[in-house]
């Protein structure tokens, strides 16, 4: 076999393709969550590898906080058009109008409320499986989550009562109203994702690369200045070279100081970075030791 080098990326890719095909074959009405971020960009390539020359056996869906970076939304639409697949967009604004989400202020972070809009959309379309791009290296609670993560009819995750997951035989069964979140890239790290993006020559939104941006320093991190984030008394707007490691809600996604302007430079930086992706970039996960676990129990991705 030595004439067939099979790299760790090949192994991860084949595992993910296998997972997607299981979902397509066994779930009645799956959907792939596409945000325009790097992890879901990888999912789309994996879906192409799993199903071409056929069409995807599921639509794509974006849960739009309307706090998105405009570059990301533009990228999302461009990529969907290129693929010729169907995109469903459900926005938090709808949930707010229906009174399902009540925000304290217009500029408050919306990450935590995505669950409501997601659960509404799952109910509307009767989805029984949502394929998402979460990775176990992101966070402590995720490290314990199954690849096929079962949710009850309220979308809740019960970490102490997970179905055992053996070999790569996945139990995809649900009762009506329940659903499964499926994470084909559970076993990938941030570095794997970037190496895969490089290998597959995947396009990603511009904001992942170093650029000059107006930011303010708040708490432990930098915040991008936008209509949602304005300097408060005593805060100073600085123009510095930054890039984003994740793309989320503009009001709480922090860029990192970096001059990595190409995928290769990002790989080099990621390989030696000393801070986790979420630690660096998500103010909403720093609130408490268990904040991700609490959100997941409530139906978050």
């Amino acid at each position: 076999m030595s004439n067939h080098p099979f790299s760790h990326l090949d192994a991860l890719e084949s595992e993910a393709i296998h997972i997607m095909r299981e979902v397509a074959a066994e779930c009645a009405n799956p959907v792939l969550l596409f945000s325009g971020g790097k992890d879901s960009i990888v999912l789309l390539r994996l879906a192409e590898k799993a199903f071409r020359p056929g069409r995807f056996p599921f639509p794509l869906m974006h849960i739009d906080t309307e706090h998105n970076f405009p570059e990301v939304i533009a990228f999302r639409d461009h990529r969907v058009k290129e693929l010729g697949e169907r995109l469903i967009v459900r926005s938090m604004e709808d949930s707010i109008k229906k009174g399902r989400v009540v925000l304290r202020s217009e500029t408050q972070s919306r990450n935590a409320f995505q669950s409501v809009t997601l659960l509404d959309a799952i109910a509307e379309f009767k989805f029984d499986a949502c394929i998402g791009g979460a990775r176990r290296d992101e966070e402590k609670a995720r490290a314990k989550e199954r690849i096929f993560s079962f949710r009850d009819e309220f979308g809740q995750w019960d970490p102490k009562n997970q179905r055992p997951e053996l070999w790569d035989i996945y139990n995809t069964r649900t009762h009506p109203g329940e659903n499964i979140r499926v994470f084909p890239i559970s076993n990938w790290t941030e570095l794997d994702v970037w190496e895969y993006i490089a290998r597959e020559k995947l396009e990603v939104p511009e904001i992942y690369f170093a650029h000059t941006r107006e930011v303010i320093r708040r708490a432990a991190g930098l915040l991008p200045v936008s209509h949602l984030v304005q300097p408060q008394a005593g805060e100073k707007v600085e123009r510095i070279v930054v890039r984003f490691r994740t793309v989320g809600d503009m009001s709480c996604t922090c860029p990192v100081e970096s001059d990595a302007a190409t995928v290769e430079e990002i790989i080099a930086e990621t390989a030696m970075t000393r801070i986790t992706e979420r630690g660096a970039t998500r103010m909403d996960d720093q609130t408490s030791e268990a904040s991700m676990e609490l959100r997941k129990k409530e139906g978050y991705f």
């Binding site: 402590k140 609670a141 970490p159 030791e289 268990a290």
Partner: peptide, 28 residues
């Protein structure tokens, strides 16, 4: 590092399978 869930941290025990990742230049 590996005792990830709230209940585990409180009780100081490990209650489920947790997955961790690391890489060296030779292998993942």
């Amino acid at each position: 590092l590996t005792d990830g869930l709230q209940a585990e941290r409180e009780q100081g025990i490990t209650i489920d399978v947790a997955y961790r990742y690391f890489a060296t230049p030779k292998r993942k």
